[in-house]
Structure formats: C-alpha cells, structure tokens
C-alpha cells in the first residue's frame, strides 16, 4: 500500500497549517483522502476541480486541498456550485456538505439541484449532528438520539438522504461510510464521472458531539458500530425484513443516465444558433 499518504500530501496546500482543525477520529479527513485518491485515479487536473463546501465541519475540509476551493455560506453551497457548473460546464464541480447544511437549511436547494439533475458531485458528510456549533440536532439525527437541543431525545424522524434524492430525480445516488474506505473510493470515483446530479452520502462519525452524548465511549467505538451496521445493498436486500433493523445498506441505489442540465442547455443553445 505504498504511496497512499504521499499522494494525499501532494494535493494538500503546503501553505496551510496542519494538522487540520477537525477533532481526533473525525471521518471528514478520511473522506478528503478518498476524494483526493479518486480525483487522482481519474487523472483530473487540479485546475479542473472546483470544490465547494458549506458551513460546519464539512465546510472546513475544502481549504486544505489544492483545488479551486469555495467556502460558501450555510446551506447555499449547491447554489454557488450551480452557478460555477453552468458557467463552466467542463469543470468538475464537487460539493461537500454536512447533513445540516444539505438537508436542513439547504434542503430546498438540495432537492432542486437533484431535480434539475445538474452535473454536480455532491458528498454529504452525514454525522447526524451539528458538530461545529456544539452538538445540536439536525434533520439527520436519528429518532431517540440525544443532542444539546434534544436533551430528552429526538422526537422527529430523520431524513433518508438516499430516498429523498432518488425521489427528487437525481441520476446517481449512493451511500458509503468512512470505515469502508475502498467502497467509498469506488463510489466517489463513480460519482465524479457520472453525468447529472450524483450523490454520495458518507456516514462519518462525530465522536465529540454525537458519540459522547449517545453512549459511544471513543471514536473507535463509533467506527466499530459503522463496521457492524453497514452492509452491501445487495446483501441487505436479501435480508429478512425483520432482521434489517439497525443495519445500513451501502452501495449504489440509483444509476440513471438522463442528460444533465448543462447538456440539455448546450443542446438548446445549439438549436437556437442554427436558427
């Protein structure tokens, strides 16, 4: 496994201070590594990548990597990314958002970007919590879980990102975890080249804000949980429905090839130009 980390180092910004700001054991760094490997494996030049991030811990990921990076405001990363993609359709526009950013404050933009099927690669780092602001619940906090704003347990059901994105009409919908890194690499690579809106929901532990309030003793415990809970979609589907509780399917859920918005737009312009 030589040259895994060296490769990542080549993509990091050398004038940025390391280690990064994320907590010990935070999965966001693992995802960043996965993203860098995927971009490298596909041979995409750094100049051709625009990495747009939202606010929160996920938002801090972008600054460390030597792409064209944009740290947008809370919830609006997809709107900025939409502008970049429409203005420069040949660029690989990647959006990194947290669960709160993507489907709480930015929920409307999320479903509309998926509906438009615009060619963005969206990596939603789902850690079930608002991490940076101190552990408040998000729209992804599971029923019954504790957070600083659900001191008596979460009463609301959480969003299922996969079903939501499927229903909104995205081309590519997948889920991975930062424990299953090789699967994650594969999903990110697929998402990067897939035309249209491509989602990878990345389950990533937040021990500091979620784990400690929900009976995980250490970051390692959270990874142990991910290791046990996650299973390939194909196996999950074969599972007796009674035994599915607590298990999380990972893999590719939607794999359509509808033309992306920017492709349709280019076709419309070509038609107009002909007269």
């Amino acid at each position: 496994m030589a040259e895994v980390t060296q490769l990542i180092h080549e993509y990091l910004r050398h004038d940025k201070k390391f280690p990064h700001v994320l907590c010990p054991g935070c999965g966001h760094g693992i995802l960043l590594g996965s993203l860098i490997r995927s971009v490298h494996a596909l041979g995409i030049p750094k100049d051709d990548v625009a990495l747009v991030a939202g606010i929160g811990c996920s938002g801090r990921v972008a600054v460390y990597v030597d792409f064209n990076t944009v740290h947008a405001v809370h919830g609006r990363a997809l709107t900025v990314a939409t502008g970049i993609k429409m203005a420069k359709p040949d660029m690989h526009v990647i959006v990194v958002q947290g669960d709160g950013d993507a489907l709480s404050i930015g929920g409307n933009h999320f479903i509309h970007a998926a509906r438009r099927n615009i060619g963005l690669t969206v990596l939603v780092l789902n850690n079930f919590i608002y991490g940076m602001t101190g552990g408040q619940c998000s729209s992804a906090t599971p029923l019954g879980c504790w957070s600083t704003t659900t001191p008596y347990g979460q009463m609301e059901k959480s969003f299922d990102f996969v079903e939501m994105t499927r229903a909104a009409g995205a081309n590519f919908v997948s889920r991975g975890t930062v424990f299953h890194v090789k699967t994650l690499d594969k999903l990110v690579r697929q998402a990067l080249v897939h035309p249209g809106f491509s989602l990878v929901e990345v389950l990533t532990p937040c021990h500091t804000q979620f784990g400690r309030k929900n009976k995980f003793k250490s970051p390692v415990d959270m990874y142990q949980w991910l290791k046990k809970a996650a299973m390939p979609l194909e196996a999950y589907e074969k599972l007796d429905p009674d035994k599915r509780a607590g298990r999380i399917p990972i893999g590719v859920f939607v794999d359509n090839h509808e033309p992306a918005l920017e492709t349709r737009y280019a076709a419309m312009r070509a038609k107009l130009a002909k007269g």
């Binding site: 895994v4 980390t5 180092h9 390391f18 994320l22 760094g29 693992i30 090789k182």
Partner: peptide, 8 residues
C-alpha cells in the same frame, strides 16, 4: 494509511 484522518 487509508483511515488516518490526519494523513499522519
């Protein structure tokens, strides 16, 4: 290497 969140 794959799982080190800090590239360390």
């Amino acid at each position: 290497e794959l799982h080190c969140p800090d590239f360390a």
